[in-house]
Structure formats: C-alpha cells, structure tokens
Design a protein around this nucleic acid. Structure first.
Lengths: 116, 116
DNA sequence: ATAGTTGTTCTAGTTGAACTAGCACAAAAT
DNA sequence: ATTTTGTGCTAGTTCAACTAGAACAACTAT
C-alpha cells in the first residue's frame, strides 16, 4: 500500500489521498476486508495532519468504499459490483480527449456538466 | 447566448463561465467566428468583476476555443475537428458512473488520475 | 474490569486561491 | 484622433484547506 502526496499540487491533500485509496480499491490492489493505516499513523508517515487524513477517509466512507469504526480503524468495504466497465470507459474518454488536445480542466468540466 | 453563474457554488466563477462557453462551442450553439460579449460587458451583466471574466476567457484561449484581441474582444476559434465522439463517450461514462452510485467527486478523481 | 487504541467533535489559528477594485497602458477598431 | 478592449499591475477581502490541540465515545485487547 503505497500512498504519495504532493503538498505543492493544487488539488487538495485530502482529495489526493482519497483518489489514491479509491483507485487501489477499484483495481483490487486493496482487497475487501483489508485494513488501512490508522489516521494518526498515516498522517505521521506522510507528514500531514490527522484531520486531513480523516477527511479523506470520511469522503471514502460516504462513497461506500471503506468503513470506519472507533478503536478499529478503516476497513475496505465488500464492493457489490465490478468497476471494470467504468474503468474502461474512463480510459477511452481520456484517450479521446488527449488525442483531440482537450485539457484536463476542459474534460472534467464536461463531465461535471453532464453529471449536473 | 445564455450564461448563468452561481456565486454560491463551490466551483469558481471563472470555471463556471469557461465551462458554459466551452460547452456552447462544442455543441455548436456558438459558431466559429462568432463574437462573445466583451469582458466588461459580460462582467456587468453578470454582476461580477471584469478580471474574473477575463480569467475564464484566457483559460478558453489557452485551450484553443477562442481568440482574444485588444480592441476587438473574444472570437470563437475555427475548430479543426468535431467533439461528437468525445461528447458521446462522456455521456456514456457518466451514465455508467451514476448507475453504479459512483459520485461526481469519485468520477472526476478517476479521470484526473487516468489523465495524469 | 482495566487500559490502550482510534475515530469523532470541538475550537482556533494560518495560508493561499478566488474574487473584487481601481488604475494605467498598448493595440486595435472606428 | 478618439474610443474600445484586452493586458498588467497593486491591493484588499473572503473562504476553503490545512494545521494544531484538546476532550470524548466506542471499540479492542489483556
């Protein structure tokens, strides 16, 4: 379980964290039932604040990717379905955007608008 | 050319503006060569600052959607290709995400990561 | 039962991006 | 020549993100 974080990036730390863990759950490098580091431990190893880690954890909990329990920590949820088709679709769209010189900002804006 | 803006939204005003105009260019409700309102005029009609409008315009210029010239204003670029397949792909991915209860934040995070 | 662990909740302070405001200027249109 | 319009600059405000520290509740382990 390798988690990197870039304080200089414009994307918030808690989002970087959530993104990293979410991807690991989706591609199954983090198995259901597996334990994540405790918020305090992960915060210390990354040199950031515990609350920032917990904000990422809470976002993932709200999305159903993990479960949080006091005294126990964070555990990867049993995912009810596969994300394979979604991952494939994302890859295709991103490739299409790239070949048409559509920036990341433009693409995410299109996604956001379509999602409403 | 209808442009709406929501000051209460968490997405920046200049991004909302850029998104709105970008979409109009992509779906051709704004034709190539067409003039956009001047920054000062649009700012006044929206009740926001000129610099905020110009920031959106400059983003769209950097993405190649419009051209900016002093004394003349903003003009929609002649787009070298069609965005139809991209728009279709975005719609499909968003629909897939929705049906799998994948949040907008999670989807954009996946996109961002795939884009690198 | 007891003690330790861990998420939860609260207050409070700092930092930086977004936004606003006003001005002077350069290039283009008229 | 005058006006229009984007560009560039300085400066101040607001708010989310982040940090910090503390007390607490639920759970684990012994």
């Amino acid at each position: 379980m390798l988690i990197r974080v870039d304080p200089a990036s414009e994307t918030p730390l808690f989002e970087q964290l959530a993104t990293s863990i979410r991807s690991s759950v989706i591609d199954r490098s983090l198995a259901a039932g597996e334990r994540l580091p405790t918020a305090r431990a992960l915060a210390e190893s990354l040199g950031i604040n515990m609350h920032t880690v917990l904000r990422a954890y809470q976002e993932l909990r709200d999305e159903g990717f993990i479960e949080l329990r006091r005294g126990r920590g964070a555990i990867v949820s049993a995912s009810p379905h596969s994300y394979d088709s979604l991952a494939a679709g994302v890859a295709a769209v991103v490739a299409d955007a790239r070949s048409n010189n559509v920036s990341l900002a433009a693409l995410t804006a299109l996604i956001r608008e379509e999602y409403q």
